[in-house]
Structure formats: structure tokens, C-alpha cells
Amino acid sequence: MAQIFHPSTNTLSRVTIFGALFLIIGLLWLLAQINRSPYVTDVNVVRAQPVPFSHQHHVSGIGIDCRYCHKSVENSSFAGIPSTSTCMNCHAHIWTNSEMLEPVRESFRTGRPLRWTRVHDLPDFVYFNHSIHVQKGVGCVTCHGRVDLMPLMRQAESLQMEWCLACHRAPARFVRPREHVFQMDWVPSIDQQDLGEELVRKYNIRVEQLTDCSICHR
């Protein structure tokens, strides 16, 4: 009886089986890469805003502290977005003819809110709280990057679960003395690991429970 399959089918079937395996692994890897890419995480994406507000001008140019505008960051989960009247504290008297500031003046005249578009947006099933991070010495710059150098606000980190966990597993690599939380260009004068471990003890950071699911999914 003649052979149904030509001998080369052996090779072919091997290639298909292993090839498919590689293809699947490769595509899974690609999927993981896409999932971590700015395309999905929105890292460095600039959003259209009613006013092209520049942190660079206001923070490093004029030296305004974050808390002047983000008033509730120290004692609330929500950092706070400045009200129209906060802008008008200064802009009632300076740059009063600026085109760019017209939406602010209009909001002030009419009482209709300025509508800023969120740049950072966690899903609602995640609980995040600014005050605890500020009180335990996690600097704004650790999570938001060099805001003082951003002409337009963008997201510096992925905000994915693996990113939160990377710090929650070993906060000593990031914590700094409380008084330097708002300082953008602070660098530790001694080794970060030594300083971090000391501060974790001093601020009573309970590392063992920080990766419990219920910390962030309540």
C-alpha cells in the first residue's frame, strides 16, 4: 500500500506544533507588552484642557507650593483641583488680558465651573488615598514625576496594579522625610535604602499588610 503522507509531513507537523506554540507565546508576550504600553496606560498622554495650564510656569517659574492649589492633598483621599477663585487670586490682577485665561474669567463671571479633564483616572473599584501617602513620606514626584518641568500635565507612571504593588512590597526604596514630600528635586543625602528602612520604622509603615487585596479593593 502506498504511503498516504509524504515523509516531509513529519517535519511539517513538527514545525506546525512547535511553531504554533511559539506563535501563541509570542502573541501573549505581545499582548502583555501592549497592555503595559502607553497606548493602554495613557502614560505621557496630554489631554485637551479648557486652559493650557502650565505647572512649569507656576511651580518652578513662580515657586508656588502644590498645596496652594491642591489644598486637600494632605488630609483627604482626593488631592483637590483648584477652584476658579484660586486662579483669580492672582489672575484678577495679572495677565488680565490674556486670551488663554478667558475661560477662567468667564467661569468667574458666570459661576459655571471650569471643566478640567482628568489626567489620572483609576478605575472605581480601586481605593486610593493621597493623605496616607503624604503623611508616610511618599513624595509627589515619586508617583507624578517632575511636575515642575511639565508645560502640560501628563501621567508619568502606568498606575497599574503591578506599579502600586512594586512599591507596596518594598516602600523603603521610595519613602522620604515628610518635610520633603512636596519638593520636586529632593535627593537623599545618604543611601536611600538605609534612610528608607529607618523611615519605615519611624513612620510605622506596616509593610506586611500593604499587599493585602482589601487595602486597595475595599
Binding site: S83, S85, G111, P113, R115, W116, P123
Partner: peptide, 17 residues
């Protein structure tokens, strides 16, 4: 000085995954 006149809306493409 009116107190809270500001609103934070979500980006249009909000469903990241």
C-alpha cells in the same frame, strides 16, 4: 469669592483596557 467652581470630568477614552 465663590468657593467651589470647578469640575473634573473623565477623559473620553476612559476605559483603558
Amino acid at each position: 469669592w465663590n468657593l467651589k467652581i470647578v469640575e473634573l470630568i473623565r477623559p473620553v477614552q476612559r476605559f483603558k483596557t
